[in-house]
Simulated scan of single mutants.
Amino acid sequence: MIDSESSPRIGQFVLITQGREAGQYAIVIKVLDERFVLIADGDKRKFHSPKKKNIHHLEFFDSVSPEVQNSILETGRVTNGKLRYALTKFVNEQVTDLKKGEQLDGERRCN
């Protein structure tokens, strides 16, 4: 059984590491059990047709989208536009942070 701290949460951002969609980002929209979750991105995987994924095939980030989480908990659903917006915002922040890290590594190597 997974610890409650490391268990997937609704609205949590994930990177798909295995399968046809490997390398793409998505959001957890439902936790089925301790092994499987449903994910969607609002674009290729809409809310009404999510992908069932084994949690071992996903990389979980500490970030959770409060907009998506609140919407699902309050109404039981979320719009695809809200999923796309949250993912775009998250990915842009992640890519920016990674580029900053790479620049720092490059500067350290030069010195």
Score class of each variant (00 low, 15 high):
62 D>V: 13
22 A>I: 09
66 P>C: 10
52 K>R: 10
13 F>N: 01
73 L>R: 15
94 Q>E: 14
11 G>S: 03
19 G>Q: 08
88 T>L: 02
48 H>N: 11
52 K>W: 05
22 A>M: 04
58 L>V: 06
20 R>A: 15
50 P>R: 04
66 P>E: 10
24 Q>L: 11
86 A>R: 00
2 I>R: 08
30 K>Q: 04
81 G>D: 14
36 F>N: 09
17 T>G: 08
67 E>Q: 08
16 I>K: 04
102 E>S: 14
32 L>I: 02
109 R>P: 09
97 D>W: 10
42 G>T: 02
16 I>Q: 01
41 D>Q: 04
71 S>Q: 13
53 K>Y: 02
111 N>H: 14
71 S>N: 10
30 K>E: 03
23 G>V: 00
61 F>P: 04
22 A>K: 12
54 N>S: 12
21 E>G: 06
70 N>H: 15
57 H>Y: 12
23 G>D: 05
70 N>P: 15
106 G>K: 13
61 F>Y: 11
37 V>G: 01
95 V>E: 04
15 L>R: 11
49 S>V: 06
110 C>W: 11
16 I>D: 01
30 K>N: 04
16 I>C: 01
16 I>M: 02
66 P>R: 04
45 R>L: 01
5 E>N: 12
30 K>L: 03
74 E>L: 14
9 R>S: 11
24 Q>N: 13
82 K>R: 15
43 D>T: 07
18 Q>I: 11
18 Q>A: 14
89 K>G: 06
39 I>H: 02
14 V>L: 05
50 P>V: 05
46 K>G: 04
79 T>N: 05
27 I>H: 00
72 I>K: 09
74 E>R: 13
